[in-house]
Design a protein around this nucleic acid. Sequence first.
DNA 1: AATAGTGACAACCGCAGAGTA
DNA 2: ATACTCTGCGGTTGTCACTAT
Length: 272
Amino acid sequence: MGRQPCCDKLGVKKGPWTAEEDKKLINFILTNGQCCWRAVPKLAGLKRCGKSCRLRWTNYLRPDLKRGLLTEAEEQLVIDLHARLGNRWSKIASKLPGRTDNEIKNHWNTHIKKKLLKMGIDPVTHESLNKQAELKDSSLSPAEPLPPQPHEVKESTEGVLNNSEDQNSSSSPDENSSGEESLLLDSICSDDSLINSLWLDETPLVEALWDSAPIAPDDNTKIDMGLVSSWEDNCAWLFDCEDFGIHDFGFNSFDEVESCPLQTIEMKEEEH
DNA sequence: AATAGTGACAACCGCAGAGTA
DNA sequence: ATACTCTGCGGTTGTCACTAT
């Protein structure tokens, strides 16, 4: 028997989500939580397939998402994790709280990949392109490149950091990651046991980074995730995010929802 | 001002694996 | 053991905004 399509193709809307659709989806999830995605569109009154709803929620509407560009520290962490994990974007994303696999994947393809190529580093193997060319010339390179060994990856990562400094020597230190951030990253990179635990452990690494890294008062991109203790707390950001267009919805749209998370949000709003 | 080219990001598609009856 | 459903993942495509000509 053939596989059923994830949704009835007829009457299913595709393309960009409207504010109205977002509102419906948010209201539904805040009321009912994340349940059977297939049923969500019907119950929420959306002409979308469940898959699309899930994607929209996880990649854009989820309250615990950080928006905006990846910080230098996050970017370096992505590079290092990619060297070890490959294109396992969800794994990588799990180490960066508030970031989605899609976001990291996009950032990799549009920014980091080019950056590494510019530095002469193969974004796939994380080895120097010159080194690879030499290996090819000497016909010593295997058909399938072996996964980089920890010390090699460390070397390449440091190369990235060093090259980054070399390449951006004209830029001010403020534009690069701070020295302390680099030190933290180095400590992570050099801690093989920690890296090995990535295969099993789901604890976000950047959380640890942020906990110990000094946060500049004017740097809004660094959020102390330690303060964000619960999903309910996280929802508060919805009211501040203009990109998301929550202001278009108005608070009235949430008044209809009689859920604990929402009450928490409203209480927090009143406190402010 | 109009058009083409490019980059960035959101969204879709198909597949695989886990779970269940 | 098998058939089926549901969810998550990674690759790819589509769309929009910006820049160059």
